[in-house]
Design a protein around this nucleic acid. Structure first.
Lengths: 168, 168
DNA sequence: ATAGTTGCAAATTCTTTGCAAGCCA
DNA sequence: TGGCTTGCAAAGAATTTGCAACTAT
């Protein structure tokens, strides 16, 4: 489930942790071990992930981290989205997350074969959205485009003779 | 939850029912009362809907229709998607359906306030998708763009003084 | 008659919540 | 200390499945 690292991050003034602390403090919330551990794990790599992925990653951290329970993961993911650090999307009726803070606006190609999400950027797309929103007097906050199909790797795999045999 | 009827249907050779029967027969499946009732209800109006909406609509049909259970609704919705009559999308981790057969490709604006889906068409968008797919050697089967924000009606509502008071 | 369908109940999957014990400011 | 957090268990919400009874062909 490796992702394509085709996009370059944007420069940001604060680290995700600093930003999260600011968000928490501004709301009278507390900076706990669990929240720190989750944030650290979430920003340790750039793949898209869901709550289960994150829970597994946390479980395999052999560090002295305190254990993080499933409800806390869900609660914290919500806070990370609220604080603007993560973006959430709904894929096959499950929530999938990705970095938002320090990462440019982009959209996705979704391979129905290997379930991989591939990122791409398009400035034309953004202007289309603006135009459409203006026409409809709609106050747009954001957009999400997903192109579904089969990625180049899976296309190749399909054409290999071994696969024809397996299909019998 | 009324929808905008801004798009005009495309001309099709068969009625949805005829097409569904063809699909069923080609797979050795049967044309049952329940499948007929569901198809009839689904194509009786053009709003987006989910399984619960459909179940409610079916329950309120005072006709001599046989009762349709929840599992049958789910099973049949799947078949309607397979047969190309409906399109399914994932919204807030639930499945939402809309007409596909006899209806042109389009995308949506989603109002986070009133939860309404507004349709729009954009040919530029389709060409962007083609270009992106070609660049990534991705075999695209389709796409889905959703612009989130607040629709014109809800924007107006927000500005009405009554609402300011209600917010206290 | 025979194989596909249906409804019921129960199981699954993903996510949220109530609450007592624990921890941060 | 006082209030926000956590983990546990349980509840919820959406969807799927096993199976015996039913029905289309």
């Amino acid at each position: 489930m490796k992702d394509h690292f085709s996009l370059t991050g944007v420069t940001v003034a604060m680290t995700p942790m600093a930003r999260f602390e600011e968000y928490l403090q501004s709301r009278g919330k507390r900076v706990t071990q669990q929240r720190r551990t989750i944030l650290d794990q979430v920003f340790s790599h750039h793949e898209h992930f869901d709550a289960d992925d994150l829970l597994e990653e946390l479980a395999s951290r052999k560090l002295g981290d305190r254990k993080v329970s499933r409800p806390t993961v869900y609660r914290t993911l919500g806070e990370l989205v609220d604080s603007g650090l993560l973006r959430k999307m709904s894929l096959n009726n499950r929530s999938v997350y990705e970095h938002d803070y320090g990462y440019p606006q982009h959209d996705h190609l979704y391979c129905e074969e290997c379930k991989q999400l591939i990122e791409f950027q398009s400035k034309e797309l953004s202007s289309i959205c603006e135009t459409v929103a203006k026409q409809q007097r709609f106050r747009a906050k954001g957009h999400r485009l997903i192109i579904t199909g089969v990625c180049s790797n899976c296309n190749k795999a399909r054409q290999r003779p071994t696969h024809r045999l397996e299909m019998i």
